[in-house]
């Protein structure tokens, strides 16, 4: 995402990037980032915590007015339970990389087929 932030900023639009992966973001070197100290998959806040999600979005959106140079700011919000042990376990959690469009549910696949046709929506031969 850092690459995309750099390209959008270079086109003249200010960017602000949320991240929970400090090293990856620091390496990509985007204009502005707000680090949330959460397990991956929850960059924008704790599930169901609307006040926290809003506060994080607000802090990220203020960055173009508050940060005077490129860098990574730190969000003060804490994850409610221990998570680092699992995050540091070097296990490859990726699932197979399917060529056909993937869906959260069969109902979504059916809705996409209804809207876009079988060939486009399911990749069926």
């Amino acid at each position: 995402m850092g690459l995309i932030a750099r390209a959008i900023e270079a086109s003249g639009v200010a960017t602000t990037t949320l991240t929970s992966a400090w090293s990856i973001t620091a390496s990509a070197n985007p204009p502005r980032a707000l680090y949330t100290d959460f397990p991956l998959g929850h960059t924008a806040g704790v599930p169901g915590d609307r006040d926290m999600q809003r506060a994080i979005a607000h802090a990220a959106l203020e960055a173009p007015w508050t940060m005077t140079e490129p860098g990574i700011a730190v969000s003060p919000h804490q994850w409610p339970e221990e998570w680092r042990t699992e995050a540091r376990d070097p296990i490859d959690h990726r699932t197979p990389r399917h060529d056909a469009p993937q869906y959260q549910s069969d109902a979504d696949r059916a809705a996409a087929i209804a809207a876009h046709g079988e060939e486009t929506a399911c990749g069926c031969e």
Binding site: G41, H42, A44, G45, G48, A57, R94, T95, Q104
Partner: peptide
């Protein structure tokens, strides 16, 4: 809805705002 091969989507499928803060 959410589909991805490389992160745990349990939370995102319950509350998409955790990866997509449109509502916020």
């Amino acid at each position: 809805r959410v589909t991805h091969f490389a992160y745990d989507q349990t939370a995102a499928r319950t509350d998409p705002s955790v990866v997509f803060p449109l509502q916020a």
